[in-house]
Structures are given as structure tokens and as C-alpha cells.
Simulated scan of single mutants.
Amino acid sequence: MDYKLINKVEIILPCSLENDEYVDPENKYCRFCKKNEQSTTFNNRSHAIPEFLGNLSLLMHTECDQCNSFFSKNYDTHLSVYTAFERSILGIKGKNGIPNFQHDSLLINVKYIENKQQIGIDPKSNFLKINMEKSTFTFNFPKNPFIPYSVYKSFIRMSFAFLPIEICNKLESTRLFLRTKNKIIEGSEVNTTVLKYTVKDHFKKLKLFIFQKAQESKVNRPEFISLFVYNDKAYQFHIPNKEMDNNTEKLQMNIIPVFENVYDIETFNFNKTELERNHTEKLTFQFAGIDSRDKSENFLRSLE
């Protein structure tokens, strides 16, 4: 493999440790803007991975309040929308507990009443498919409107949080890219194409891998690749920069073989800066105890 692993995070969701754990040295120095406590404040509980994803205890010292607020408002808000349905259907607890979900169409919702999950689906919609032979039901789950480019930058922000600080200090272009709404690094638009695939039986887990190029190649490959895995969805992308990448030629990226059982491999471009509407993704579960199509219809009626 052309890449070596330089950092790895694995969390069973929700991550709620008895004591907070910090991922970086205890120095009040922001890795995103390079300011210290003489020129900015560090009063917020800055989560290395957003709290709404189920990370309740993994924090970082090296993100100031100003950067934390900017990322939360401009990027993480859209990642929250992007992951809302799966967090609700899987019962992943965030800052305010397990979230309810209501799609804008009003055709599907997930609610928690007295800690019991209730799912409402219009049977005439195409949000749920039941395969009796395989004993599976698949949600073609909808997403409320989100900005893809903001989701992409939230991915980059998380990855930058786990880069060794000495590498962060070299990537001034990445730092500027994150702290502005720009799509440009050194006059070129950043390639926001993400390799996306499904990992079998990977629920209520969050993993983040960061790889660095281990050897030169005839192919123009990025210096850093990040793999973010949330439940059964994996997103592989490069960390954009001008200091260590050759941006004069097209960067090429192959899937880094971390998991054995993967499927639905595709590319998705997160370059859109307007609201993305009517976006759906698949989420498949197996069930037991439903053994006839008649029971299947009863199951559907119970979701009304």
C-alpha cells in the first residue's frame, strides 16, 4: 500500500467517558488560527468530533472559541442535518439526548416517547422496502435540505483535528481553507469528490483513519487521505493543501483497504454550495419473526 496510518480513532456510540479525554496537548494554542490565549479565548468545550454524532467526551484543547463557533455555525449544522435520520433511527444520543426526526415532506418521522421508539411512515411512500426472502427491510431514508460543501468542510475539520500538530503547522493553505467559505486553494478549486461505500454490520460505531503517503508514485496521489466511518457509511477523501500536494495535475485516489465486507461503492461530489433537496440514502436491517407477506402488510400499517 502506498500509504501509512498516522492516526486512528474508534468510538462505540455514544461515547460517554467517566472523565473527559483530550486528544491533544494541554496548551492553549489554536491549531486552526494559530492564536494563543493572549489573543483569543478557550472557554468552550470543543469536541474533536461533533457532540451530536454521539461523541460526548472526546475533547480538544487546540480549538479556540472563535473557530469553534465558526465551524459549528457554518459546517457542523449541515452535517447534523445530513446524519439526522440515522442518528434518530439508531438511537444515538447527542448533547440533548436521542433526537427525534421529522422529514419536511411529513411522510416519515421517528419519535421517542417515554424512551420508546415510534416510527411513522406513509405506506404509499417509497421510504421503506421489505424483502421477505432475505428477512430485511431497507429505509431509502430522506435527508432534509443541507449544503454538501459545508458537510465536506466538516469532514476536513474533523480530520485536521487529529493531524499531528507539527503537520498542521505546515498546512497553512488548509487552515485558511477551513477558516473561510472559499472553495479555492492557490487559485484552484478544491476537488470535493468523496469515495463513499457501505460497510457490512457496522452500526453504532464511529471511526476516523488518517493516512500519509508512504512512498512516491508515478500517479499523482494526495499526501493525506482521511477515512471517516459513521455507522455503516464510509467516506474517504483527501485533505486539501498546496504545501505537499501537486495541484497542477489531477489527484487520483483509490480505496484504502481497511474493511473486507464493503458494497455500494460510489463517488459523490460535495461541491454544491446551495441547499441539496430530495437526497436519499439506504439503510438496511435484518429482522426475525415476520414470515409472510400478510404480516408484512400488517407491519407497514403499524408504522402509519
Rank of each mutant, 00 (worst) to 15 (best):
N43S: 14
N44H: 13
N44W: 12
S46N: 09
S46D: 09
H47Q: 05
A48D: 00
A48S: 07
A48C: 07
P50E: 02
P50G: 00
E51W: 09
L53K: 09
L53H: 03
G54R: 08
G54Q: 05
N55E: 04
L58F: 08
L59K: 06
M60T: 06
H61E: 06
T62H: 15
T62W: 14
C64M: 05
D65M: 08
D65Q: 06
Q66F: 15
Q66C: 14
C67R: 05
N68L: 10
S69L: 15
F70R: 07
F71T: 02
S72E: 07
K73W: 10
Y75I: 00
Y75F: 08
H78E: 06
L79C: 02
S80I: 06
V81Y: 10
Y82N: 04
T83Q: 12
E86M: 13
E86D: 06
E86F: 10
E86R: 13
R87F: 03
S88D: 02
S88Y: 03
I89P: 07
G91E: 05
G94W: 08
N96C: 13
N96E: 11
G97K: 11
G97P: 03
I98W: 08
I98T: 01
N100Q: 07
H103P: 05
S105G: 04
S105K: 09
L107A: 10
L107N: 09
I108R: 08
I108M: 10
N109P: 08
K111P: 08
K111C: 12
Y112P: 07
I113M: 11
I113P: 10
I113W: 11
I113E: 03
E114D: 14
N115D: 11
N115P: 13
K116M: 13
Q118M: 15
I119T: 02
I119W: 05
I119L: 09
P123C: 08
P123I: 08
P123V: 03
P123M: 11
K124F: 15
K124W: 15
S125E: 05
S125D: 03
N126A: 12
N126D: 11
F127K: 08
F127G: 03
L128C: 01
L128Y: 03
L128I: 05
K129C: 14
I130G: 05
N131F: 09
E133C: 14
E133W: 12
K134P: 10
K134M: 12
K134R: 15
S135L: 15
T138Y: 11
T138R: 12
F139S: 04
F139P: 13
N140I: 11
F141N: 09
P142V: 02
K143Q: 12
K143I: 11
N144I: 07
F146T: 03
F146Q: 02
F146E: 01
I147Q: 00
Y149K: 07
S150N: 10
V151M: 04
Y152S: 00
K153A: 00
S154E: 04
F155Q: 01
R157S: 08
S159N: 05
S159A: 06
S159R: 04
F160T: 03
A161D: 02
A161M: 09
I165K: 15
E166V: 10
I167N: 04
I167D: 04
I167C: 06
K170H: 12
L171R: 02
E172T: 11
T174G: 04
R175S: 11
R175I: 06
L176H: 12
L176A: 12
L176T: 08
F177L: 03
R179Y: 15
R179V: 14
T180G: 05
N182S: 15
N182L: 15
I185G: 03
E186S: 13
G187L: 09
